[in-house]
Design a protein around this nucleic acid. Sequence first.
RNA 1: GGGCGGUUAGCUCAGCUGGUUAGAGCGCCUGCCUUACAAGCAGGAGGUCGCAGGUUCGAGUCCUGCACUGCCCACCA
Length: 1023
Amino acid sequence: MPHELPKSYEPGAIETHWAEYWVKEKLFSVPTPGPGEKRPVFTLLLPPPNVTGRLHMGHMLNQTQMDIIVRWHRMRGFVTLWLPGTDHAGIATQMMVEKQLESEGIKRRELGREKFIERVWEWKKHYGGAILDQMKRLGASVDWDRLYFTMDENLSRAVREVFVRLYEEGLIYRGKYIVNWCPWHGTAISDLEVKHEEVAGKLWDIRYPVIGSSEFITVATTRPETMLGDTAVAVNPKDERYLHLHGKKVLLPLMKREIPIITDELAQPEFGTGAVKVTPAHDPNDFAAGKRHDLPQIDVMDEHAHMNQNAGVYAGLDRFEARKRVLEDLRKQGFLVAEKDYKLALGKCDRCGTVIEPRLSEQWFVKIKPLAERAKRAVENGEITIVPDNFRQIYLNWMANIYDWCISRQLWWGHRIPAWTCAKCQHVTVVRETPLTCDRCGSTELEQVPDVLDTWFSSGLLPFTTLGWPEKTRDLEVFYPNTLMITGFDILFFWLARMIMFGCHFMQGHRQDAAIKNASGEGEKGDDSVPFRHVYIHALVRDAERQKMSKTKGNVLDPLEVIERFGTDATRFTLAAMAAPGTDIAFNEGRTDGYRAFANKIWNAARFMFMNVDRLEDSQRSLASVQAMWGQPPKPVFSLELGARPEQSPGSLRAGVLGFTAVTLEDHWILSRFNRVAADVNAALETYRFHEAANRIYDFFWGEFCDWYLELIKPRLQRAEPHNKLARLAAGEDMDKISTELEAELAELREEVGPERMADAERKTEQAIRLYEERRATRRAGWRENEFGNAMANIRDVVAADREMSATACKNLVSLFDASLRLLHPVMPFITEEIWQAMYEGQAPLKSIALAAYPQADEKQFDLAAETEMSILQDLIVNVRNLRAELKVESKLKVPIEVFVHEPEIRTMIEHNRGAVERLANVEKVTFVEGSLAKLAGSRSTSRFDVHVVHERKIDVAAECERLKKELEKIEKELANNQKQLGNEQFRAKAPAHVVEGLGKRGQELLVLREKTQSKLRELGCA
RNA sequence: GGGCGGUUAGCUCAGCUGGUUAGAGCGCCUGCCUUACAAGCAGGAGGUCGCAGGUUCGAGUCCUGCACUGCCCACCA
């Protein structure tokens, strides 16, 4: 069946088709392996995107890398689970829905909590799947049957379980502390959600009058409005300037409140005046000092950072407005002594950019140190490895300096804290399910605490809650610990660290099945409580100018748009090829365009392959009809059978190049090269060097497979071609055409196959034509009669032998293509699937290439000799091409060349492959000569051969001199360096043998090259 | 204030554990529509590897300092 493929690759329809197919066929759904499963398990949790999210480049990078690793494992025979889900994303979702309501003129608070939550669920039902659809377009091979949502009932139950257990263990506590408060969101947020930004601010010196004296004490502040809540002034106890003021009081300006002067380490003598105002309700340090001195806490603001009734006349003002007014009033009243420029790190809300207000409020906290210690150990002692290595240290530092985690949020959307306050005794009951009575007084007047949990609290549990915890499920047994976690460093602390803390705490000694434990192999340590064994931290995707992508800058690249333009495969390839561990990716579309070209290259190579398959099948049919004519049984039609494929068990032995028969030099060479690539790619993926894997395949496929191998096998492939026509004509009915066509065929036959080899066939064909001509002259019919038939029969052996040669070459081509597709599949899943499926014309042995075996290197197929010979041949060809260009020989003109080769075996090798030289360098005839050609103008030399292009056009002597001089200079320089090193006793003694040997060899080459270059320079009479 | 990265061709980047001639893509120049591919083919130009020292037989690669640049962390007024 002819393969009709369009001339250039159009990814759009092909990609959506396979994306749908993969999902529909449930190719990546993993049933839970039962006991006795011997295959190793690979588990990866998708960092759940926010339900509100739209796919961005970061996701795409993350998912591409995960998908590459996942597909690679799957093809190597692992039980491979990639578990997808979405995150309820507390604040983000709440805001989204709130905005939607506002557009309908509805306020959240008017709607009420319950109704609002209903609306959120409704929203989720409609829009929450958008990002998942986008993921499908990327080809992410996740198990869609296991899709979860962090607010699913079973996950919620697990969250409550965790909360209650931690509470019972004393690791969760409740209390009134200073927290980071976002006045815009109206909720507490964690330290991590505060971004510090350096801004040019002011430092104001304010003097407070000391009571009972005419003295003032001057304090410095960046936030004068908080003075309204001052409850003391602190000086350092050792500060001699203030010894006389110890125990005195000051009168707080504006508020006219008497507040004490206290002595506390809070005040550092070196800073400013050494005296500091103390505002326990608005600053964490002051809060601590206030505790030490039992100071009152006066909160002067409300939840939206407007001044409250405690702020006296300033009540109702926004905090910044209040600052202005306070300063104005202080100035008027003579309390403001100085105003200086001051650089300060202003804390802003990560989400909305509002300046954070440290606020005193009742919140819930996780006592983090005990959890952190275990989590730190897990990384320290190698239970978890982190790549790149530097993140390990960052992680450990963070763990060592960690503070308690504020987990309560004043929001509506999220996991509600399972705590109920008693109206009667104020006691708080913490239980898994809604309680009927108060723990302490038995009252039934209970009200659930309105707060919800930080989103990261539930995400931190996902490695085990998604597998069924707290039940002891088989899934947990098999898939926990996960094998790998791939994520960006931006959520290293938010998420990764918390997963490790929670996992280590809740999953101690969970795994019972030794078989599973062994199968996951690789010398693991610890008690299987860690959430995952390996962590790979990927870089940030920036724009082409290295800027961080952000909505406000408007430089956000929409991956779907990029995909639209270049295709998913090309986009994936870009991300993979640019992802060197540890460095950010400046996404640059030029690269993507280049990889689109690569896809096109693959596509066209496939067209070439199909063309030859068709040709061969055609030839087979023609031959068969001729054979039938001769009364011989036809041979079986060429087929793509590459040997039995391992059904559902990739990773088995048949992973390499299947059904390949190395006949010629280029066969041995390409087989060797393929195996090296396979070795390199596997090694690269093992260490997350995606760029290396991608580039290696690219270079192989384009630079070796297409540029050289395909070109080299063309004559063999096309050998069947002339016979096709011959045979068709011989069997055909249209007798009028035969004569002329037969003659044309004959000419073509000579051209294609070469005179020596086809002499016999040619002679016979000529004979056939003559016979035919005779017969036509007498009577029209009867050409099938014996004489002609016999003549045709005589050429059949030649024809059959050539067809056989073509068949082998074609089979090799197909086999190599198949292996290359499998090698490339994890990076470019779509185009590889499309071509692979086309190769089997709907008869593929597996449902998808994604289930086929990943190529593994076979060292026995490394062939150094073939590689060396091939590189000499390539050298020769390139030198001839180079000379042709230099001589400006018309590109179509075939030129004769002369070659001098010193080593006889290399000469023999070139002789054997002279056809290749003739074809690829457009050479008419290769003549071997006995003496050096190095001096000749129009020649090129390497240390192994001289080659001379015979052509009347002479080279530009001046330019040639220039070139030679430059070359000589380079040679001299390298030679000098070479001799210096070889002459160095230390080097000979200390350097490894192969280096010394290699240098020696190179030295010899350089000497030869120098000699040749010099003699040519002399000959040309260069100055 | 601490910590971490980057600096290699005009541009974007590779170059793993120090080892023979520093690579690729894009761009540029020259010639080709050669029946897989002009999104292509062939050939070419272009680099004192940020600067200065040091270790070593040997440094783009390791160490120190400096410069520029980016990022993360941080409750000092």
